[in-house]
Structures are given as structure tokens and as C-alpha cells.
Design a protein around this nucleic acid. Structure first.
Lengths: 236, 236
DNA sequence: CGATGTGAAGACATTCACAGCG
DNA sequence: CGCTGTGAATGTCTTCACATCG
């Protein structure tokens, strides 16, 4: 039950959480695994297996109590405490991030916005005054920042990341199109537009190829199980 | 050799491609799997296995020719042809996307920017005039759009997605914090800030817990930037 | 010789199918 | 009876270790 939730499960918990909060707003009190799975875009067996890693929070013959499950998942993800975030780089993307409502909504506080450009420093974005990037170490130390968001141009990203790590940040969310090198003790997650588009392009290409060879019952096409639960078009 | 490159491999090819183009700009002619793997932040065995799915493009005892490998990966990802993209929703995030340079850089053309807000329609963003969202079907049909980017507020996302799909789009990149329901024939990938932050929070929480129990040498390892599922591990 | 390419082994994740409980 | 929770089976990905070849 406890001790080590699989990474694949952790990656899906936020999706379940979102579906559950939506249900809660609609006034739904309980859900079956079937219903919740549909709302989250996964199979019901996978959902039940995922939830079983947190404990036995369902009722057989009934389902899950929405409010209770929201709390349990939130606790497991560490959202019952507040995490302070610093955003470095207030360009187009940084603006979008700073104004993103869901950011603050659950457990995350933007401690500061930093930028290297004098023309941006001093501006107010999302209710915060942009500070010079030189304040980085000071901000991290004084505000007890845990998570750094790198939204700088590519050339500056590694340097900013190094400074974040040196200042004590142990989680980094990277929007710059570079591979950040960090010590083993630091966790990095990357969000990359071109990567996503390129993955979509690959699937588009294959789909077009399949469309052309529809008439030809080549035996190589046998890879597709087809029929009922074939490829759902969802991210891995 | 051909027929079915694993999804996990496809998700990493863009990373290799980026590392390779950087190397090419620096004038490097050949790389070993060891070097390229380091630049991409993966293990060398994994890299070789990944590349082996494309074919035998290396030279034993030497390594890979950078230019040649760039071409082969690009071709495999379908980047040798041009994919037309429509961006729906030109708020903060849409602005960032429209101005994102790497967007156009390789194989992607923004066919149009659409928005439902009259105050934004008519503005010029990233060199394009924002058009009303009512033009969606027309734009998709006339420009032969393959990929739709949903950057709208959450409540509008599913509706926009439905219209994209009905108009013939078969790949969708979703930035709205909702689970989009689509037919099996359509591929959706999701980019979600809160999801990423929540996954980081989970690992932060666990790291803090580990730090408190000092005697137990449970070292948090491997961060591994990747597409889709984030994997990271804790070694026993 | 040295680095690729790859079977084989192992780790991890998903799916199945049903026992067990409310 | 209906739905959860879970062992067992299946499938997928990663890692190892070395034969192979330029």
C-alpha cells in the first residue's frame, strides 16, 4: 500500500485531482472508478490500481467519496503545505506564467519574478514587481523558495539554473529549450513546445502513411491490435 | 529495423535532435554515443538502443556523423515536410506561443491565430493578424491545417477542440487545464503547468522526508527530463 | 582497438479477471 | 448485487554485457 508510489501513478494523480475538483464543484458526492476514469481519460482498472497505492479510500459496491479523495490525493502530492516558487525570466512566457491563475490556486505561491532586462525590472506583472535577477540568491534564501521556474532565453538557462541550485533550490521547472545539467539531488522537469509539436508531427506522418496504404493489406500492418481498445489518442 | 518505433523513443528523438543541432552549430562533425547521451541527459545504452530503431546510422569504432543523424531523425519525425498549425486563444499564453521563435524554425508554420475576444481580433501578434474564432473551419480547410493548439480558457477548450476535430484536424496540443475528449483517430498531447508543479511538489515533499531521516541513505536519483511521463527514481 | 548494435535479463507498467466486501 | 481492490498475466521500457565490425 504505502512506501513508493510508482512514478507513472504520481504523474496521473494531478489529472485525477482536477477531475475530482470539477466533480465537487458540480455537487457530486461520490463517483465510481468507471465514472472518474472516464472524466480523467484513462481506463478504470488503471485508475483503481493507481488509487490503491494511496490506500483503501473507496467503498465496495459504492465508489469513492469525492471530497475525501480530493483531500487524500492533495496530501499525497504535498499540496497541503505551501510551496514557494520563483519565476526567472519575464518575457512573453513569464508574463503568461505570472498571470496564470491556477498557479496560486493550490499550494503554490509566487515568491518573486526576476529578470535580467532593465526595461522589464520594476514593471508590475500579475501583482508583483519584477526584480533584478541579481536578487536571486537573496530571494531564495529569505523566502525559502523550493521550486525555480526557468523561463529565460536558452543561452541564459543553464547559468540561471546553476544559481538556483547553488542557492538551495531542489526542484526546477524548465521552459527553455535546453537540457539542464544538475546534481543528482535536484529534480528537473521540462516543458518544451517544439518537442510536443515534433511528437505530434511523428504521429501525423504515420497516420498519413497508414491512410495511403489502406487498400494494401500488407502483413506488416499487423502491429495494430485494432478493434476495441486500440490506440486512444492520449499522451503516454 | 523499421515498423513501430516505441513511444518512449519517439518522445526522446526531439531531445537528441536539439543536442545534435547544437553540436552542429559548434562545428562538431562526429559524436560518440557517450558524448551525445551526456548532452541529451540520458544513458548511452538507452541512446544507442533508441537510434538502433531508426537503422544503423553509426560507424563502429567511430560514432555518429552529426549532420547525417540530424537528417535521419528529422525525416523520421516528419520534419522534412511542413506542418500547418493553428493557434486558438491569443491571451498571455497565446502571445507567448505566437512569438516563440523555435515554433517556425523547423517544419512548422503558424497558419492563423484565432480568438473569440473582439478586443484582440485585428491585433497583430508575431507578424500575424488575429482573426475571429468563427473563421476556424475556413482556416483549417483552406490552409490544410494538421495541428491545432488550444490555448483558450478552460471553459472554451472542449468546444474549440470539437470544432477543430470536426474541421479535420487530427492532432491537438492542449494547454487548457481540462481533459479533452476526442475520437480514437485524434491524438492529443497536454501541457499543463499545475500538473508539472504538483509532480515537483510530490518529489520535494519526499525529499524533505528523506532529509529528516538522515541515517537511511535513500538517495534521490535520476531526474530525467522527458516527454509525457516523468520518470525519476529512488534507489534502495 | 574501440564504439556500435543487439540479444537476453531485469525492472517497470498496464491489463485482466475475479475474490471479497459493503 | 455492484464495485473496489488485487494477484497474476501480459506488455513495454531500460539496462547489461558482449559479439561484431569498421
Amino acid at each position: 500500500m504505502r512506501q513508493g508510489i510508482p512514478d507513472a501513478t504520481v504523474a496521473r494523480l494531478p489529472v485525477y485531482l482536477r477531475a475530482l475538483t470539477t466533480l465537487a464543484e458540480d455537487g457530486t458526492a461520490t463517483v465510481s472508478s468507471e465514472e472518474l476514469a472516464a472524466a480523467a481519460g484513462v481506463g478504470s482498472a488503471k485508475l483503481r490500481k493507481d488509487l490503491s497505492h494511496l490506500g483503501s479510500y473507496g467503498t465496495r459496491g459504492v465508489g469513492y467519496e469525492v471530497e475525501y479523495l480530493v483531500y487524500q490525493i492533495s496530501r499525497e502530492l504535498g499540496l497541503t503545505q505551501d510551496w514557494r516558487v520563483v519565476i526567472v525570466g519575464v518575457g512573453n512566457l513569464g508574463h503568461a506564467l505570472a498571470n496564470y491563475g491556477g498557479f496560486v490556486s493550490r499550494g503554490f505561491t509566487v515568491a518573486a519574478l526576476l529578470d535580467a532586462d532593465d526595461r522589464i525590472v520594476g514593471e508590475t506583472v500579475g501583482g508583483l514587481v519584477v526584480r533584478p535577477v541579481d536578487d536571486l540568491e537573496e530571494v531564495v534564501a529569505e523566502q525559502g523558495v523550493h521550486i525555480g521556474v526557468v523561463a529565460t532565453p536558452a543561452p541564459a538557462a543553464q547559468d540561471v539554473c546553476d544559481r538556483l541550485v547553488a542557492a538551495g533550490v531542489t526542484s526546477v521547472l524548465n521552459f527553455a529549450p535546453v537540457v539542464l545539467l544538475v546534481p543528482d539531488t535536484v529534480m528537473v522537469r521540462k516543458v518544451d513546445l517544439s518537442t510536443e509539436l515534433q511528437i505530434l508531427a511523428f504521429h501525423e506522418q504515420r497516420q498519413v502513411a497508414n491512410r495511403l496504404s489502406v487498400d494494401v493489406p500488407a502483413r506488416v500492418v499487423a502491429l495494430e491490435p485494432d478493434g476495441g481498445t486500440g490506440r486512444a489518442g492520449v499522451s503516454p
